[in-house]
Simulated scan of single mutants.
Amino acid sequence: MTGRRRWSTDEILEAAATLLRTGDAESFSVRKLATALGTDSSSLYRHFRNKTELLRAVADRVLLATMTGHHPTGDWRHRITALALHLREAFGEQPQLAAIWGRYGSGGAGSRLAMEEMLQALRASGLPDQEIPVHYHRLVILLVALITSEAGLSSITPAEFTQGTEQFRVAVLGADPAHFPALSHFAREIRPMGADREAAFADILTAHLNDLAARIPG
């Protein structure tokens, strides 16, 4: 009697990524993944101890693919900006996986490569070594927040986007000046959260790097 096929770790992660592209972390389960692979859950637990570990590994595959083709050049600001844009592009193509990354993080080879590049760029900036960890942490929080938020917006359907835009217009343009004087004053200039996301990403990152540059001694 022929036994069930043994799936490799990479094949399991690819199947998990496929499921997550059409769902989310809440609806995902090891049992569903096992069914998709035609095996049982116990065989998958030989590779991953639990669902969270598996999800972190899926997110790390995106980081690993991004960093494998990443070749840093330029000064520290250019290196950080290039890394941020590469990550934004990679997760923008897989918004559901961006949400996984933002929620569960990662800890594999891809994560280490991204961390190493960020830390090397910060060291090249001239910041004292003792100040680098805190600035690294703040920069990572900023990038994860921006990338996951943008990915979440990009994953909505055209119908959902249209409905949200209409609700935004009603809420803003219909605001009572007596109760919302500032909102009424700026109503025609305020734009929906999903507007100009690329420009907003660049502006926020640039502002943070400008602040960081001002802290460099000399």
Rank of each mutant, 00 (worst) to 15 (best):
195 A>R: 11
185 H>K: 13
118 M>N: 14
105 G>D: 01
121 A>P: 02
145 A>P: 04
121 A>Y: 06
118 M>R: 14
174 G>M: 09
169 R>L: 12
174 G>K: 11
147 I>H: 09
181 P>W: 01
162 T>F: 10
133 P>G: 04
139 L>Y: 01
167 Q>D: 15
137 H>G: 14
102 G>V: 02
111 S>V: 01
151 A>Q: 03
104 Y>A: 09
184 S>G: 10
173 L>V: 04
172 V>G: 11
128 P>C: 07
184 S>P: 12
204 I>C: 04
125 S>V: 02
177 P>Q: 10
191 R>P: 03
167 Q>E: 13
162 T>M: 15
200 A>I: 00
175 A>G: 11
162 T>E: 14
116 E>A: 12
153 L>P: 02
141 I>V: 14
153 L>N: 07
142 L>R: 12
104 Y>I: 05
124 A>K: 09
141 I>E: 15
118 M>C: 15
140 V>K: 11
185 H>Y: 12
117 E>W: 01
167 Q>A: 15
177 P>T: 11
178 A>S: 13
137 H>F: 13
154 S>I: 08
114 A>H: 01
198 E>L: 06
157 T>Q: 10
180 F>Q: 14
118 M>P: 08
106 S>I: 03
135 H>R: 12
132 I>S: 06
135 H>T: 05
173 L>F: 08
191 R>G: 05
121 A>F: 02
166 E>P: 00
152 G>P: 08
187 A>C: 04
203 D>I: 09
163 Q>I: 10
154 S>C: 12
132 I>H: 02
196 D>W: 00
140 V>D: 12
201 F>A: 01
201 F>P: 00
135 H>G: 08
176 D>Y: 04
140 V>T: 11
192 P>W: 03
118 M>K: 14
159 A>E: 14
115 M>T: 14
170 V>M: 15
106 S>A: 14
149 S>P: 06
147 I>P: 04
133 P>A: 03
115 M>L: 13
135 H>P: 10
173 L>Y: 08
117 E>C: 07
111 S>T: 10
106 S>Y: 03
188 R>M: 09
204 I>N: 02
136 Y>P: 13
192 P>H: 08
194 G>E: 13
195 A>M: 07
168 F>K: 11
146 L>Q: 09
120 Q>Y: 10
176 D>K: 12
184 S>T: 13
163 Q>E: 13
184 S>K: 12
133 P>E: 01
189 E>M: 11
192 P>V: 09
142 L>Y: 07
134 V>W: 13
171 A>S: 11
168 F>P: 03
201 F>V: 00
115 M>G: 09
152 G>Y: 01
146 L>G: 10
160 E>C: 09
200 A>P: 00
138 R>A: 12
119 L>K: 07
169 R>T: 07
115 M>H: 11
158 P>I: 07
186 F>Y: 12
173 L>H: 15
135 H>L: 06
126 G>D: 00
117 E>K: 04
203 D>Y: 07
155 S>Y: 05
123 R>L: 06
172 V>R: 15
200 A>V: 01
